[in-house]
């Protein structure tokens, strides 16, 4: 057995030193994962998950089980966390009402706090803070609206967006220059 812990899958043997018994209790207090302990591993989430059908690694049931066991790092550093399409099929069909998609979202939020933020979200955050819109609307599109008979776009008040998001940890992280941001994995 090797000393290095694989963070990308649950396939490496689990070592007692990896387990964080407090992880599940932290999750119980977070908005979205309050019901994680109700999961009895029936597997409905995974069997009905459209992404799991085509991914070799994304298994919501496994992620929840790993979290229940206290495998904090394996869960939060898992690449597959970001594959969830947020279709909410698992949430609607879970017989234990675990709100699986919200639990996955909590995992992602925690991963992001640790610096694992996929590029696409950094770009959307940058656009939001600059324009109020999640995508930077091209000037050409804005001008074209008039000839298409469409009213002008509502003003995205970026200043007010920045004011209201003051103090939010994620926003503070993405506003830091790249060098000062925590590194992903």
């Amino acid at each position: 057995m090797t000393e290095t812990v694989s963070n990308n899958s649950g396939k490496e043997p689990i070592k007692a030193s990896e387990l964080d018994p407090k992880f599940k209790y932290e999750l119980l207090k977070m908005h979205g994962s309050e019901k994680i302990l109700k999961c009895f591993q029936c597997g409905t989430c995974t069997s009905d998950c459209p992404v799991a059908r085509y991914s070799d690694s994304y298994r919501p049931r496994t992620l929840i089980h790993m979290a229940q066991l206290g495998l904090r790092d394996r869960v939060l550093k898992s690449d597959t966390l970001w594959l969830c399409a947020a279709c909410f099929t698992c949430t609607d069909r879970c017989p234990q009402d675990v709100e699986v998609a919200s639990v996955i979202r909590v995992f992602r939020n925690l991963a992001a706090e640790n610096g694992c933020i996929p590029q696409v979200f950094k770009e959307q955050a940058a656009s939001l803070l600059e324009s109020g819109y999640a995508y930077k609307i091209p000037e050409l599109r804005i001008k074209k609206r008039e000839s298409q008979g469409l009213p002008p776009l509502p003003k995205g008040n970026a200043e007010n967006v920045r004011k209201t998001l003051k103090g939010v940890k994620f926003i503070e992280t993405v506003q830091k220059p790249a060098g000062e941001q925590p590194n992903a994995q």
Binding site: R108, A112, Q124, A134, P154, V168, K169, I171
Partner: peptide, 18 residues
């Protein structure tokens, strides 16, 4: 809308609070 910003959904995966 007199003023607008993104509904928030795109950033929910990284920050529920946002």
């Amino acid at each position: 809308m007199p003023e607008f910003n993104c509904c928030g959904l795109p950033l929910d995966p990284v920050s529920h609070e946002t």
